[in-house]
Deep mutational scan, measured.
Amino acid sequence: TETAWISLVTALHLVLGLNAVLGLLLLRWQF
Rank of each mutant, 00 (worst) to 15 (best):
12 L>D: 00
5 W>Q: 00
11 A>N: 00
28 R>D: 01
21 V>S: 04
28 R>V: 11
8 L>A: 09
14 L>C: 08
11 A>G: 09
22 L>W: 11
5 W>I: 12
7 S>K: 06
7 S>W: 13
10 T>R: 09
17 G>H: 10
4 A>V: 05
10 T>P: 02
20 A>M: 12
13 H>L: 09
18 L>R: 07
26 L>R: 08
12 L>N: 10
6 I>R: 03
14 L>P: 04
13 H>W: 14
27 L>R: 02
7 S>N: 06
9 V>H: 00
29 W>E: 10
14 L>E: 09
18 L>Q: 01
4 A>F: 04
15 V>I: 07
29 W>V: 14
23 G>M: 15
26 L>Y: 11
22 L>M: 13
13 H>T: 15
24 L>T: 02
19 N>A: 10
4 A>Q: 00
9 V>G: 03
9 V>N: 03
27 L>F: 11
2 E>P: 02
11 A>V: 11
2 E>W: 06
25 L>V: 10
29 W>K: 15
27 L>K: 01
4 A>I: 01
19 N>R: 01
16 L>P: 04
26 L>G: 06
30 Q>A: 13
21 V>Q: 03
3 T>F: 03
13 H>R: 08
28 R>S: 06
27 L>C: 13
1 T>N: 13
19 N>L: 02
20 A>N: 01
15 V>T: 13
13 H>S: 15
6 I>K: 05
7 S>A: 15
9 V>W: 07
21 V>A: 11
21 V>G: 06
17 G>N: 02
30 Q>E: 06
11 A>S: 07
12 L>Q: 10
5 W>R: 08
18 L>P: 08
21 V>H: 02
3 T>W: 12
11 A>F: 10
21 V>N: 06
12 L>S: 01
16 L>Y: 04
9 V>P: 00
19 N>K: 11
3 T>Y: 01
30 Q>D: 02
23 G>E: 05
19 N>E: 05
16 L>A: 11
30 Q>S: 13
10 T>I: 12
6 I>A: 01
22 L>R: 08
22 L>T: 00
3 T>L: 10
9 V>I: 12
16 L>C: 14
17 G>V: 14
27 L>G: 03
10 T>F: 07
22 L>N: 05
28 R>N: 08
24 L>G: 11
15 V>A: 15
21 V>R: 04
27 L>P: 08
10 T>K: 11
6 I>Y: 02
21 V>W: 03
23 G>D: 05
12 L>K: 06
12 L>T: 08
5 W>M: 10
15 V>W: 05
30 Q>I: 14
16 L>T: 06
7 S>V: 14
8 L>I: 07
17 G>P: 02
25 L>Y: 09
26 L>E: 09
14 L>A: 07
6 I>V: 11
28 R>G: 11
9 V>K: 00
29 W>P: 15
7 S>Q: 06
12 L>E: 07
4 A>M: 03
14 L>N: 00
7 S>F: 14
22 L>S: 02
11 A>R: 02
19 N>Y: 03
24 L>E: 02
18 L>S: 07
25 L>P: 10
16 L>F: 06
30 Q>P: 00
4 A>N: 01
22 L>G: 05
6 I>N: 05
8 L>M: 14
21 V>M: 12
10 T>H: 01
7 S>Y: 11
17 G>D: 09
4 A>G: 09
13 H>I: 15
16 L>S: 04
11 A>H: 01
15 V>E: 02
19 N>Q: 04
24 L>Y: 03
9 V>Y: 10
12 L>V: 06
26 L>I: 13
19 N>G: 09
30 Q>V: 14
14 L>F: 11
17 G>Q: 09
13 H>D: 08
24 L>K: 04
4 A>E: 14
1 T>A: 14
25 L>A: 12
12 L>H: 01
5 W>K: 00
29 W>Y: 15
12 L>M: 08
1 T>S: 12
12 L>A: 00
26 L>C: 07
22 L>P: 06
3 T>H: 04
15 V>R: 05
8 L>Q: 06
10 T>Y: 00
27 L>Q: 00
14 L>Q: 03
4 A>H: 07
6 I>D: 02
3 T>C: 01
14 L>G: 05
7 S>P: 07
12 L>I: 11
24 L>W: 00
28 R>K: 15
